[in-house]
């Protein structure tokens, strides 16, 4: 029963046409929810969360730095999974997803690096140091850019997706390095204070706005991916009957 549901979900969301219809229904309410969640988290963090006892107010950069970083890492893992599905099963929707996930992931990685530098200066006295966390995050940016560039370099979209999918898969190793870089080696970057399992070591008054701005960032990412996936679906399926009908109807 459960297996059947999973299998049906896989085949339905694996169909570009179904995904297009599904996203048409989801986007009108997901977009405002994402925006509101993001803004609430950021404003709460900037104006209402207490100052840090050591860093004062410069720590408030956390409310964009951590959400952007987590989004960048999760996005890459999702892109790696899509890459694997595209390479192994040649699933069309997975190929489309690789292309849709990469741009906002690259944007979030860039934000993570820039905000991290701007937080580092008043905290550590330097914008940049080649420590494990920062270097592996810079490599993540190059991986995202590589996946985008590879897709643009190959003309046939299906071949392009397979090449990019392979690169995306391999790059997941780097995500593991980013994640554990602060635990395996002694870095300038601090360890994580948010824990999925066990007690977080961050003050709850700081934790809740952080969790909300993280959720908001992920939802914005989902919106961005859906919009981009829809464009790619239209481009690939332009010769199919349902897209022609949609266009003829002046369609959304």
């Amino acid at each position: 029963m459960l297996w059947k549901t999973i299998k049906r979900g896989y085949h339905q969301l694996g169909s570009p046409r179904y995904f297009y219809r599904f996203s048409s229904a989801v986007l009108p309410w997901l977009t405002p929810i994402a925006l509101i969640t993001f803004v609430v988290g950021i404003v709460w963090g900037l104006a209402f969360a207490p100052p840090d006892y050591q860093q004062g107010n410069s720590y408030r950069i956390i409310y964009i730095h951590v959400p952007a970083s987590s989004g960048a890492l999760m996005g890459y893992v999702a892109m790696g999974i899509a890459g694997m599905v595209a390479v192994v099963w040649r699933m069309k929707m997975a190929e489309i997803m690789i292309k849709a996930i990469a741009p906002f992931g690259a944007a979030l990685t860039a934000i993570s690096l820039v905000t991290g530098a701007l937080w580092g200066k008043p905290t550590w006295g330097t914008y940049w140091q080649w420590d494990a966390r920062m270097t592996s995050m810079l490599i993540l940016l190059f991986m995202y850019i590589g996946v985008i560039a590879l897709q643009n370099a190959i003309r046939d979209p299906r071949q392009a997706a397979r090449a990019a999918g392979l690169l995306a898969m391999v790059g997941v190793i780097n995500v593991v390095i980013v994640k554990y870089s602060v635990e395996w080696v002694n870095t300038l970057h601090q360890g994580s204070t948010l824990k999925l399992v066990g007690e977080s070591t961050i003050n709850p008054a700081m934790k809740y706005p952080l969790l909300i701005s993280m959720l908001g960032t992920w939802l914005l990412y989902a919106v961005n991916v859906m919009v981009r996936a829809r464009t790619e679906i239209l481009s690939r399926e332009r010769r199919s009957g349902w897209v022609k009908q949609l266009v003829a109807a002046g369609g959304r």
């Binding site: 900037l46 408030r60 950069i61 944007a107 934000i111 905000t115 919009v227």
Partner: peptide
Amino acid sequence: YVWTAYGISAVVIVASM
């Protein structure tokens, strides 16, 4: 530092959208 960080982030996110 704080406002430059948020300003750049806003520009990048809006640009991607």
